[in-house]
Simulated assay, not measured.
Amino acid sequence: MTTQTSVPPGESPPECSYCGQPFSHEEYLVLHRGLEHGDELDDDEVSAFHEAYEEETEEMRLFRLKVLAVLVLLYFGFLFTYSIVA
């Protein structure tokens, strides 16, 4: 599957040296290499993947906590509104 992208003139996106797939951010390239080409990576690339993976995991954990807090606030907001109106 090929994704259509637009790259500003004079710039080139980071590309995977193994499969040539372009990425919008270097971080995405590091994660792609670790997930898709893990057996072919050298030690520096493996450590970069582990760092990026841990950072991504932490960001996802924080996002989930924020979403949970919003859902709890919505729930109690609707509950209090219902108890006042009804």
Rank of each mutant, 00 (worst) to 15 (best):
T2L: 14
T5G: 08
T5M: 06
S6D: 09
S6N: 08
P8R: 09
P9L: 09
G10Y: 04
G10R: 11
G10I: 00
E11Q: 10
S12H: 11
P13H: 10
P13N: 10
P14L: 02
E15S: 14
E15F: 04
C16K: 06
S17G: 10
Y18R: 08
Y18F: 08
Y18P: 02
C19W: 00
F23Q: 01
F23A: 02
F23I: 00
S24M: 07
L29T: 06
L29V: 02
V30P: 03
V30K: 09
L31W: 01
G34L: 07
L35C: 11
E36N: 04
E36Q: 09
E36W: 02
H37Y: 02
G38P: 04
D39Y: 14
E40F: 15
L41F: 11
D42V: 10
E45Q: 04
V46C: 00
V46Q: 01
S47W: 05
A48V: 04
A48M: 07
F49Q: 06
F49W: 02
A52R: 00
A52V: 00
Y53F: 12
E54V: 11
E55R: 11
E56M: 11
T57L: 13
T57R: 15
M60L: 15
L62V: 10
L62Y: 05
L65K: 15
K66F: 02
V67R: 01
L68A: 12
L68F: 11
A69D: 13
V70E: 13
V72K: 07
L74C: 04
L74W: 05
Y75L: 13
L79S: 12
L79V: 14
F80N: 05
F80T: 07
Y82Q: 14
S83G: 03
I84M: 15
I84F: 12
I84L: 15
I84Q: 11
A86D: 01
A86L: 13
